[in-house]
Design a protein around this nucleic acid. Sequence first.
DNA 1: GCCACTTGTGGCACTCAGTGCCAACTCTGC
DNA 2: GCAGAGTTGGCACTGAGTGCCACAAGTGGC
Lengths: 205, 205
Amino acid sequence: MNDHRPGLRERTRRAVQQDITEAAQRLFVEHGYERTTMDDVAEAAGLSRRSLFRYFPTKEDLIVGKFEVLAETMVERLRERPLDEPAWTSLRRVFDLLVPYVDAPGKHEVAEPMQRIVFATPALLASYLEKLHRMAAAAETVLRERAESRGAPSDPTDPALPAVAGAAFSCLLAAQHAWLAGGAAETFAACLDRAMAAVAPAGKA
Amino acid sequence: MNDHRPGLRERTRRAVQQDITEAAQRLFVEHGYERTTMDDVAEAAGLSRRSLFRYFPTKEDLIVGKFEVLAETMVERLRERPLDEPAWTSLRRVFDLLVPYVDAPGKHEVAEPMQRIVFATPALLASYLEKLHRMAAAAETVLRERAESRGAPSDPTDPALPAVAGAAFSCLLAAQHAWLAGGAAETFAACLDRAMAAVAPAGKA
DNA sequence: GCCACTTGTGGCACTCAGTGCCAACTCTGC
DNA sequence: GCAGAGTTGGCACTGAGTGCCACAAGTGGC
């Protein structure tokens, strides 16, 4: 039962997860998030309500669940950045991971209404912000490691590092919001650049 | 039916709200947030479950509900700041409003465990982050008004302004977190200063 | 004082998210 | 085919939140 490679069980699980996600998103776009029950999703995805909850522990996870894995990828990417690069630049480059999710040619049509739903639904927005906060916390840990490997003190009770990490993710959020408000006229990457340039912390971390 | 002053009805309502909040916080500290049901709170506060929901529409509001009014106060305070003051400084000064809530001599003992509960409970943290996000959005609106009254373009689809506002609130959050992590050794105001100094956006808004 | 009228309260029943439990099924290795 | 692990679905339950309604309680006018 070693999971060092996909494996059949894992692959079928991923496939079912994908089916559920697609069915759910279709229902959410069509009828709205709150008016769609987990029973509806289960029926549309062709499994029982009980099993649905085994794939997605909460209703919010149907939308924001993917960020769990995304966070890990971002941490890896951040570790790969050159040690002498300013933290702000590293974070900007890490955010490039999100770009294909947002304004890739094919996904654009699916991602945009889904993002609108997230921003329009308080419960979903709250859940999304919490994910971003956890990502920022993970990023902060990596930045701290990097600072120490360069020979810096990095007091764990100093708010400087989490402030910078959090600020970067705020820029990410602002860029996303602006991208939606502008009707996706500009590319998401450009929004991100402008948002992060507007903050651009002086104190390096 | 003009509500330009307290009025008897409003005052009794505030008093009941206060009683409920205190009873709830006591229960949360004693037994934990998730293990305390709304029935428990209702019983401890001496009213029915149904009426409790008329005072606090959600369980989260028992803790983070006060930020609704706080947001309005912050907006007022922000409007009062001198027009030529940099946005970052204005926001820092506005955050002074929160300081008495956190490390005031009397409230300190109550506020600290409550903040720990918020950070330790995913649902509460999510709700709190959403409140902060709304505050940031409100602050952004005021900053935009101020920029325009100084004769600046301020494109509503530009992510710069929301990025700066969001970054400031990220600093607030980081300061709060650091203050808790440090066991409230340093004053909250000092944490706030350090967090905001670490980001200190270059591009004025 | 009585009589509308408005507002607050409590109870009841309901929806819906989420969970524990258990029986049935299905794949795997032997 | 069989034993065992993992998956599924059904059932019943808790707990948040809501709509509805009947009833009390304060607030007028007269």
